[in-house]
C-alpha cells in the first residue's frame, strides 16, 4: 500500500499499542485532534482515552510524568508538538530521562519514546523549524534517531517503542506527506545502523531525516555532471554507526555531510572527526559540510536561503572532487 510518512508512523504506533497494552501515547492535542500533523489520528478512538490522551500544555510535565509512568511499568510514547517547544522539558530530558538508569546503577530503566517533529522547510512561523538534535545526541543516556523513508517511519517507530532505553525519534516534519509503498511486516536494518541508500564511487554524501530525500535528489542531479554519489542514510545520531561510514569512505575517499542543523559543533563535525581518525589514509579531500548557517533559524521567506538544498550539496561535492 502507498502511505505517507505520517501514516507510516501512525501505523507503527498503532501496531506497537496493539502488540503491548503497556504502551501509552500522550502529548498536546494528540487525542481527539489526532495531533497537529495527524500522526496520532484515530489512535484515541481505537485504544481509548486511558491509553491515548491529551495532556495539559506543559512539556516538562509531559516528559516528567512519562518518567514516572515508565518507573511504574508503562511504556510511554510522548509527543513534543514541535522541536522548539521541547525546550521547557530540557531538564527532565537531560537530568532525569537520560540519567536515571545510570544514577540508579542499572536498577531503574526508562523505556520512554519521545517523538519530536523537527526541522524546517514548511514555511512555519518562528520556533517551529528547529533542528535541536545535537542537544539530545550530546546527552549521554539518550538514543536519538531520525527516519528518512516511509518504511523507516514505521520500522524505527516500532523499534524505538520496543527499546528499553529512552529513544528520541526526530520526525522530519517536511517529509510527513512524502509517499511510498509500505508492505508489512517491514524489515529494515537495526535501529542504530546506517544504511547505504544509493551506491556510488566518487563521493559519499551522508544525510538523515529530512535531508535524506534532498541528498538522493542531489545524487540524481550529480549523475548529469558525471559524478557518482554514494548516499548513506545515517538514521541514528546516538549512537553513530561509524563502521558503515568508514566503509563507504574507504570506497569513495571523499565525504560530504548534510544536515539542517547549524554547522558548528553539529553532527557533521563529529562525523568528520571520526572519519579523519578512522580512515585518514583513505581521504582524498577534507570532509566537507552542507548545513544550515550558525544563525537562528530564519523567517519563513528566507528559509530557502538558509536550508541546505541540492545546489549547496553539489557545491560541496564539487569542492571535494576538485581538492
Amino acid at each position: 500500500m502507498t502511505v505517507t510518512l505520517a501514516q507510516a508512523i501512525n501505523r507503527g504506533i498503532h501496531d506497537a499499542m496493539e502488540a503491548d497494552d503497556r504502551v501509552l501515547m500522550f502529548g498536546e492535542d494528540v487525542g481527539k485532534l489526532g495531533g497537529v500533523f495527524r500522526v496520532t489520528d484515530t489512535l484515541q478512538e481505537t485504544f481509548g482515552t486511558d491509553r491515548v490522551y491529551d495532556t495539559p500544555l506543559a512539556e516538562s510535565g509531559i516528559i516528567g510524568t512519562a518518567i514516572g509512568l515508565a518507573m511504574y511499568g508503562f511504556r510511554p510514547v510522548a509527543e513534543m508538538q514541535f522541536d522548539g517547544f521541547a525546550y521547557p522539558a530540557f531538564e527532565q530530558f537531560t537530568s532525569h530521562l537520560a540519567k536515571m538508569r545510570n544514577r540508579s546503577r542499572g536498577r531503574v530503566k526508562l523505556p520512554v519514546t519521545v517523538r519530536i517533529p523537527f526541522g524546517g522547510g514548511i514555511g512555519a512561523v518562528e520556533h517551529h523549524s528547529e533542528s535541536p538534535e545535537t542537544y539530545w545526541a550530546h546527552t549521554a543516556g539518550l538514543k536519538v534517531v531520525s527516519p528518512g523513508t516511509v518504511a523507516d517511519g514505521y520500522a524505527m517507530t516500532r523499534a524505538a517503542i520496543a527499546a528499553d532505553d529512552p529513544v528520541i525519534v526526530l520526525e522530519p516534519k517536511r517529509r510527513y506527506w512524502m509517499k511510498d509503498d509500505l508492505e508489512l511486516p517491514v524489515t529494515t536494518e537495526p535501529l542504530h545502523k546506517a544504511v547505504v541508500r544509493r551506491p556510488g564511487t566518487d563521493v559519499t554524501v551522508v544525510a538523515y531525516g529530512p535531508m535524506l530525500k534532498t541528498a538522493m535528489e542531489a545524487a540524481d542531479a550529480a549523475e548529469e555532471e558525471g559524478w557518482s554519489l554514494e548516499v548513506v542514510d545515517l538514521r541514528s545520531l546516538s549512537p553513530i554507526d561509524t563502521d558503515t561510514l568508514v566503509a563507504s569512505l574507504q570506497r569513495t575517499g571523499r565525504m560530504v555531510v548534510v544536515h539542517e542543523a547549524a554547522q558548528s559543533l553539529g553532527p557533521a563535525a563529529e562525523i568528520a572527526a571520526r572519519m579523519q581518525q578512522e580512515a585518514f589514509y583513505h581521504l582524498e579531500a577534507p570532509i566537507l559540510r552542507a548545513t544550515g548557517y550558525d544563525t537562528p533559524y530564519p523567517p519563513a521567506m528566507l528559509e530557502e536561503f538558509w536550508l541546505p538544498d541540492v545546489d549547496r550539496i553539489l557545491d560541496r561535492v564539487e569542492e571535494a572532487l576538485d581538492y
Binding site: G61, G64, T65, I67, L69, M71, Y72, G73, Q92
Partner: peptide
C-alpha cells in the same frame, strides 16, 4: 514532583 505525579497516574 513530576515523577510522583506520573507514577500516580500509572497506578
Amino acid at each position: 514532583a513530576l515523577h510522583a505525579a506520573g507514577f500516580a497516574m500509572g497506578a
